[in-house]
Every structure is written in structure tokens, then in C-alpha cells.
Nucleic acid binder design. Structure first.
Lengths: 255, 255
DNA sequence: GTGACTAGTGTCACGCAGACACTATTATAC
DNA sequence: GTATAATAGTGTCTGCGTGACACTAGTCAC
């Protein structure tokens, strides 16, 4: 049957003859703190899975866009706003919630260190404890949230390798070493310092801020990322158009 | 509010207190025929958008997995089974259907030339006309289906460049020229013949079938793709692990 | 056998990427 | 103030993938 075109005439009015699963959004909110990649989880206070931890999320409003619902839930449940947010995947196995049919649209969010500092992340009025968890030391999760998280981590890694997204986890200005630590933590492996710097600088998404990070030891140059860098999915083409290798107009390291 | 953890106690039973959008699946079914990339569309017989063309799709069953729903709808509405099918994106703007709130999970499908020949694609019992349309000469589409299709085409292009997916549109055995034509049609641009062959053969997903395509002119070698090639998203890493350049174990062209 | 048509082939030059180790600058402890 | 610890910062060489580019080979139809 095609809901768009060819329902039996009796049903043209579209009432409740068709089963209607509940539709929710769930958020995977990543942040980077203390050299750790962390996710925000909320402790369940009721069955099923009482005591287990779960992704923040909730019902989509009757006239609410999915994206708006994700933003609203993030605000309500964790007091977080102003994040990068993108749709991840939709999970709809019939038995993922033992009580009823729930289809959930998962969203994937990155909280910058600045926002993390400003916004007191707290659990919303009707949510239980909210806590940041190291992505590599997670507690037991409710529902199919472990699977959702795994998928989100995959996506984050992919984004990091192919887009400028890594910057979104850091403060506005940051050193190259800090940036490298984000990459190493997310990808979960060590990177060569010289090659990392060469590659990142050559990509042209960074600019020096002029400031220096004073610290315990030798001060480091601070960088920010050039505005248009966000989500510039550097359209890597396997079969490039005749002249698209002009994109190497980015600055190289000085020689 | 968090449906997973913290509903007001009165609602723990989860009945119908929360708005429940209708949930549907919509399919973008691609095929390659007569050197054209085509999509299957269904003509709407009722308002809204009566007379316009729309993607095949329908309601998700009460206890039905989303993926299963997509397969079932494809079968019922277009008599097509046995296709490559992957989730594309979920579209949920509140006004995308003027009658009611409908959240649709879009799936993206590739029909091989073999299947296309065997299965008489026809419109299902309660669907209107079904027709293949050239992706570059589409009619007016109902709802937000134009946007969905655009997104699907983007995904198809990406898949073609980075995975072995192109083969899924061709018959089991095919010539390199035929494969190149698929790539050119989907990417919508001309490719260099020698470079194309080099790259495809070097990727190691093809093997000669031993047969030849007899034709009007010089016969061409037939290839098939090696089984594990499907959806081998050749994990291209931007920051490869220390020894992952061993992956060049694929055959090079003979010299 | 000639023409039309498609299949099939090789080289060169350049840029990107990976492997690799030492110097520079600052703060602190004594 | 000198030594030490800690982090910042830098260059080269080699190999490989990739893009640009044009001609020969085999078959059929007339």
C-alpha cells in the first residue's frame, strides 16, 4: 500500500487505522575534556533498565521538525544548546523498547570546549543524573544504545578524517598539539607529529590567531579555524573533473 | 522529557498520550537501462498531488522492522525483490504531507540488470502506474520527493566513487566499457578510458569471467566482481595505521 | 578489402604521504 | 644561575598513486 497515492478510499481521511509507532530522537553528545573523548549519558530511574545509563532523548512533538526536536531535547534534558548537530541514523527494530514500538532518529552532536565551560551541563528537570562518560569506559547501556553509540563513534571517526569537524570539540583557539590530541583520542591511535602538522596546515582550514598559549613550558602558537572550514566535506573525488586539482591552492609549509 | 527514563509515572504504561506521527518508508529504486540511470516512480491517483509522480513507499507495520518494511513495500508496490537496500535518511518536516504528520525513512535501492530483466516490474495491486524515469529528466514530484531523490543521487555518486557498488546496477557479467558507462552516467561526466581501467582493475574487485561479449564489433572480455567486493567500503584512512599500506596487495596491470 | 566501430594498451611527470630525530624555548628546582 | 624537564617546532627523501595523453587490434557489414 502506498500512503501517498493509493489508500483504499475509506482511509483517505487518514485517521488511526494505521499503526503508529512512537517517534523519538536520541542524542549522542560528544565532548573532549582532560584528553578524553566523552559522551553524555543519563541514568534511568524507572524500569525497564532502571539504574542503567541511556542516551538523552525524547518524543518528537506533533508539529515539530526532527532537527528541532533534537535541539529541544538536548536543551531540556541537559541544558546544552548551541552545538553542532547532524542526523545519524534511524533505529526501528520492533523490540528495541520492551514496552512498545519506538522508532528513534539518532542525532550526533559535538560540544566545543568553550560551550562546555559556559553551559553548566546538568540533568533537566525530569531526567535523572546526567554524567559524562569516557567513550572507552562505558557503563552498561539501556536499550540498543550501545549499538547506536558504536555507530556514532564510527561516524565521528570518519568525519574527523575527512572533514574539518575536529575543531568543533576544541575551544575557539587551540594549539596544534591540542588538536593532535583530539585526533589521537578519537581515532584511538598515535599520529606522527610532523606529518600531522604538515597535513593539517596544508588543508588550509587553520589560521594563526596571533596569540600564544602561555603554559608551563615553551609557549605554543594558537590557531583558529577559518570560518568556511566547518563541514567543508572536502569533496574528494575518485574520478576528478578535468581541472579539479586546482584545489591545491592551500598554503604549504614554508621551506 | 525522556521516554526512556523519566516519564511522569502516570504515563509509564505508554498509551496514546504522546503524539504519534505516522511512520512510513519510501524507496528510491535505481536501475541502469539503455545507458540511462533511471528511478522507479508511481503515479498518484488521489489528492493531494493527484497526477503527480511519487516514490514507492508505505506504512511501517506495527511489529515490522524498518528494513523489512522497505523490502515488503518494494515487493508489494513494484513486484521487485532481491535488491541491494540501504537506509538513506529520515525526513520529518511537519508539513511534508499536507494531511497529517508523516515521518518517512527513505531507503535507497539498486536493481541489477539481471533482476530488472527477470522480474516484471509492475505496479502493485493498489498502486497506480509505475514507470521508470531518467534521473535527468524527471517529472514533477509529489511531496518533498524531489529533495529526497536529490539526496539519494548524491549518495549513489558517493558510493560509486568510494565503494564497489557500481556493479550492482549491471548484469552478473559485464565488460569494462559497460561499467565505465555506468560510472559516466551516474557521475554525469566523461572519464578517461585508460585511467578508468587502470583504477578499477587495480582495486582488485573484478575478475575475468573467461567469457567474451560477442557483439557487433570487436568482442570484449567479460568480468564479474569478486564476491567480497560488495560494499567493501575500502576503509580509506586519512591517517593510516603504521603498516596499513600493505593493502596494495591488489593486482596491478601487467607491464 | 575497406570502412566503421569498439576493445584494448603504456609512459611520463608530479604531488602526496609516510618514515624518521633533533633543536628551540620556557619554567622550575636546586 | 645552572641544570633539568617538558613541550613546541622543524625538513628530507623515497615511493606510489594519479592524471594527461593517442594509437593499435579485432570484428562485422558492405
Amino acid at each position: 500500500m502506498n500512503h501517498h497515492s493509493t489508500m483504499p478510499t475509506a482511509l483517505q481521511g487518514y485517521t488511526y487505522e494505521y499503526p503508529r509507532p512512537a517517534v523519538t530522537v536520541d542524542m549522542i553528545l560528544f565532548a573532549f575534556q582532560n584528553d578524553r573523548l566523552t559522551v553524555l549519558l543519563i541514568r534511568r530511574t524507572h524500569d525497564p533498565f532502571a539504574g542503567k545509563w541511556a542516551l538523552p532523548g525524547g518524543f518528537v512533538g506533533e508539529h515539530e521538525d526532527l532537527y528541532d526536536a533534537a535541539r529541544r531535547e538536548l536543551q531540556e534534558e541537559t541544558n546544552v544548546s548551541n552545538v553542532y548537530l547532524e542526523q545519524l541514523y534511524t533505529f526501528g527494530q520492533p523490540d528495541r523498547d520492551p514496552r512498545m514500538r519506538v522508532v528513534t532518529v539518532a542525532y550526533f552532536a559535538l560540544l566545543s570546549a568553550d560551550e562546555l565551560a559556559e553551559q553548566q551541563v546538568r540533568s533537566g528537570s525530569d531526567a535523572g543524573d546526567a554524567r559524562w562518560w569516557d567513550i572507552y569506559q562505558l557503563p552498561q547501556l539501556a536499550f540498543d544504545h550501545a549499538r547506536i553509540l558504536e555507530y556514532a563513534l564510527q561516524r565521528l571517526r570518519w568525519k574527523l578524517e575527512w572533514t574539518a569537524l575536529g575543531f568543533l570539540l576544541l575551544p575557539k583557539e587551540f594549539t596544534l598539539s591540542e588538536l593532535q590530541r583530539v585526533y589521537e583520542t578519537v581515532l584511538h591511535e598515535a599520529l606522527d607529529k610532523r606529518n600531522f602538522r604538515r597535513k593539517i596546515l596544508a588543508s588550509g582550514v587553520l589560521e594563526e590567531s596571533g596569540n600564544m598559549r602561555a603554559g608551563d613550558h615553551r609557549p605554543a602558537k594558537l590557531y583558529r579555524f577559518s570560518a568556511q572550514a566547518i563541514e567543508l566535506e572536502q569533496a574528494r573525488r575518485r574520478f576528478p573533473k578535468p581541472d579539479s586539482h586546482k584545489r591545491s591552492s592551500s598554503p604549504r609549509l614554508r621551506t
